[in-house]
Design a protein around this nucleic acid. Structure first.
Lengths: 108, 108
DNA sequence: TCTCTATACCTTGGTATTCAAGGTATTATA
DNA sequence: TATAATACCTTGAATACCAAGGTATAGAGA
């Protein structure tokens, strides 16, 4: 009874979108939350309860690195892709493309 | 604290694929399991632990109706789409299309 | 002044979805 | 005789996700 526990075939979309956003520029969490909703046309809208923990997980895995920066008395935590993160982005993107093609095919 | 509990943006892919298969012809569970893997090019391969319960859920919801048929001493349970199920198929397909477009867009 | 909104971080509790790994029973194949 | 294929099924666990909260600062409006 090993049980690796994957939840879905294309879960991890929030992750993919985060990685993609960070490819263009470093961003802080709150900004990312807004940006995803906007960039996905409101179709995919992971909230803060999804994004904040995900960012920390990605950093723990070495895909992101963070840098706190004070702004207006608040503190922003900026995240940037590492080279590992870039690879992960490419992998995830490929994965997505494969799945999307397969489904497209299957639905015809 | 309502908590409706959706797991993903594109979970429910097995469901969509099942509905799509049944649009063409009625099928029994075991057959569906094989067919999905084949039809999706091996990318999406929900096992029996996913498909069997799903079929019963869909039937309970009125999207499918079932018909047992003895074959070779075994018993096959054939499933067919109801008109409600057809509508569900269309809805899910639209949903998928919207998500796929949005992600495509976001990844560019 | 007081309140409300926006920003920016965070957590808790709960649920649906999916998977690995089993189990039963029959028939066909080696 | 054993193994594989067919055909149904379940259990237990992991995970991803969401709703709904909470803290604290700054600015705008009443």
């Amino acid at each position: 009874m090993k049980s690796v526990g994957k939840t879905g075939f294309l879960t991890g979309l929030p992750e993919l979108l985060i990685l993609r956003l960070l490819q263009d520029q470093e961003m802080y969490g709150y900004e990312i939350v807004q940006a995803i909703a906007q960039r996905s046309g409101g179709v995919v809208t992971p909230g803060e309860a999804v994004v904040y923990p995900l960012l920390r997980t990605l950093e723990r895995d070495g895909d992101l690195k963070s840098r706190p920066e004070p702004a207006d008395g608040r503190t922003r935590v900026y995240y940037a892709l590492t080279s590992k993160g870039v690879r992960r982005l490419f992998d995830q993107t490929d994965q997505w493309t494969r799945v999307a093609k397969a489904i497209q095919q299957a639905l015809r």
